[in-house]
């Protein structure tokens, strides 16, 4: 079956034999964007978190057929070196990553949260950021989320 969607703002059409194939594998192995990670394949670790129409979604548990007509964003589309998302900028400033493998999933979750809760509290962060980081960079991630909220606020102020 043919499925069409927008990936990081560019239209994509993929031909799949099984529409139930998790979107994760289509993104990684067919469309060759490797920033979205496979960690468990059971929607437990959050390493594969992407945005579907702006909502955080775990792509290992999301059948590709549901992507039809949707706006999909991955870490590669969140921001770029030239134009980083506030979350990415904050992640750099706070030197968050260690091994780095889980970080795209965390950044996608954090960006989705800041979209809904621009000024989160500790409790908001605890309740909304439930991915797993084995290097346990949680302490810096929390600092970076606060910094990203600040950067986002500043950026909003600059736009007239």
């Amino acid at each position: 079956m043919k499925i069409s969607f927008k990936l990081n703002k560019s239209p994509q059409t993929v031909e799949v034999a099984d529409g139930n194939t998790p979107l994760l594998w289509i993104i990684r192995d067919v469309l060759d964007l490797k920033g979205t990670k496979f960690g468990c394949g059971k929607a437990a670790c959050g390493a594969c978190t992407i945005h579907v129409n702006g909502e955080a979604v775990r792509s290992c548990s999301y059948a590709v057929k549901f992507a039809e007509g949707k706006e999909i964003t991955t870490i590669e589309g969140l921001g770029s070196e030239a134009n980083p998302h506030p979350v990415q900028q904050a992640w750099i400033e706070e030197v968050v990553p260690q091994c780095g493998y889980c970080q795209p999933g965390f950044m996608m979750a954090a960006a989705a949260m800041l979209e809904k809760i621009p000024q989160p509290t500790d409790e908001d962060i605890d309740n909304n950021i439930i991915n797993i980081c084995r290097c346990a960079t949680y302490y810096r991630m929390r600092k970076a989320i606060y910094k990203a909220a600040e950067l986002q606020k500043e950026a909003a102020r600059k736009i007239p």
């Binding site: 139930n20 194939t21 998790p22 394949g41 059971k42 929607a43 978190t49 909502e55 955080a56 979604v57 775990r58 290992c60 548990s61 999301y62 059948a63 549901f66 979750a109 954090a110 989705a112 949260m113 979209e115 809904k116 809760i117 908001d124 309740n127 909304n128 950021i129 439930i130």
Partner: peptide, 21 residues
Amino acid sequence: GMPAVRCNTCHQAENNSFSGV
């Protein structure tokens, strides 16, 4: 669910046999 952890973050309109969600 919570703002960034919606039920739909993991649960879709059908069972997923790959993940078991």
